[in-house]
Design a protein around this nucleic acid. Structure first.
Lengths: 223, 223
DNA sequence: CATAGATTGTGGACGGCGTCCACAAGGGGA
DNA sequence: TCCCCTTGTGGACGCCGTCCACAATCTATG
């Protein structure tokens, strides 16, 4: 049993086996409850039952661990978006249904999933955006969900589909991601950290609908 | 000269005189360069030339200092919005100009000021939203700019004006703040921390215009 | 004008954090 | 088998937030 341990989860082998993954998982758990600031090196190693310095064999510093946790959180966000995507009522997507309506429903599902994730996992949501990125860093497969696409690509894909169906004019397509993302991301932040905290859930539903409507109206010309 | 000081800015009187304000100012300066995480109690006291514990005579703990700095940052944001507001070309606001056009220009100026502040003072901008608030905390005069209104009230005022001019239908008025704020705040976050970092300023101008257009279209029915 | 009491700043200490260095345990290739 | 590279340990350092006891100063009361 090694030395009489000060902390609980002592392992019996000297080697851990998969320490890097274990540290990221511990970090995700910390982030889930306390946001990005709770991703603390020593706390993560304590959970895993390892000395603080062991982390330095897998991460250059605390920042590197935070980046890894941030990427994992973006993966969770992508999964939430995919889940809403998959849960679309099948009648909307039936073969004889209006294809443009189906594509619009998919765009909307992406927004709904985004907002649901922000509401149900605020700590992870904040963590997903805690590390400054740029465009190239937003399409890395490291941030992907189950379908292999990071959040940004899921949105781009839905917009591409609308374009190919003629619902989104090609001259409006460039940069359309940012219009949609701005509105939905801004609302998410307002809901979890801003003046909309503590608003009742029915009112939240109203506001979410209005924001999504506004995005659609602003993006897609009236049919 | 007091005791041979370890740090530079030693004062000659035992009492400081206005330590609370000095600490907040030091905190704002720290936040300006390093964001909310840089608002560090010991660093602030060091700048002011005072022992770390002196801060506890004016703030319950570090969190209280951060809240005060956050409020000051929101005041700065309000000032940036007011500045853009005041800089509106006078022909738009002339007595013989279309009043609805003037009101729309004012709404837009608020958004432009918001985005400009985010771009030119990203550290303060992040700090202004680093402390979770709710609606009641968004209208406190503590967060006000020079006109005595916090950012949220500046936006509300512009929307009220549009409503009284008939440009914004009364049934669309409730909650309209959140539509506008969501879009603009989301874009600001994307610009300073998200995938739009490093995009050239001409492209940024394009995107900003499109987002503001979308807000106007979504809020105000076509004339 | 003196002095008691409330305010405000100081000094020292504690535990927690990130990080560095030297060392030990264990595994894979020669 | 033996060597060396990888991975985890132990101890130390400086910075952080915070607590305690104490000193300097201001103020109110007699």
């Amino acid at each position: 049993m090694a030395t009489a341990g000060a902390d609980r989860p002592k392992r019996d082998t000297y080697r851990h086996g998969d320490l890097r993954r274990a540290l990221v998982e511990a970090g995700v758990d910390l982030a889930r409850h306390g946001g990005p600031d709770a991703v603390v090196l020593r706390a993560a190693t304590r959970r895993v039952g390892v000395a603080p310095n062991a982390a330095y064999r897998h991460f250059a510093d605390r920042d590197a661990l935070q980046r890894a946790v941030c990427a994992a959180a973006q993966g969770e966000l992508a999964r939430a978006m995919e889940a809403e995507f998959d849960a679309l009522a099948s009648d909307v997507l039936a073969a004889d249904a209006e294809p443009v309506a189906a594509a619009r429903a998919r765009l909307r599902a992406i927004g709904v999933g985004y907002l649901r994730f922000a509401r149900t996992e605020p700590g992870l949501f904040r963590t997903a955006f805690s590390v400054p990125t740029d465009l190239s860093g937003s399409t890395s497969p490291q941030l992907a969900g189950d379908t292999g696409h990071p959040p940004f690509e899921l949105l781009s894909g839905a917009l591409d589909e609308l374009t190919s169906l003629g619902a989104l004019p090609p001259d409006r397509r460039p940069g359309a991601e940012f219009i949609a993302w701005s509105a939905v991301h801004g609302l998410a932040v307002l809901l979890i950290d801003g003046p909309l905290r503590g608003v009742t859930s029915t009112e939240i539903g109203d506001i979410e609908r209005r924001v999504l409507d506004t995005v659609e109206q602003g993006l897609l010309p009236p049919p």
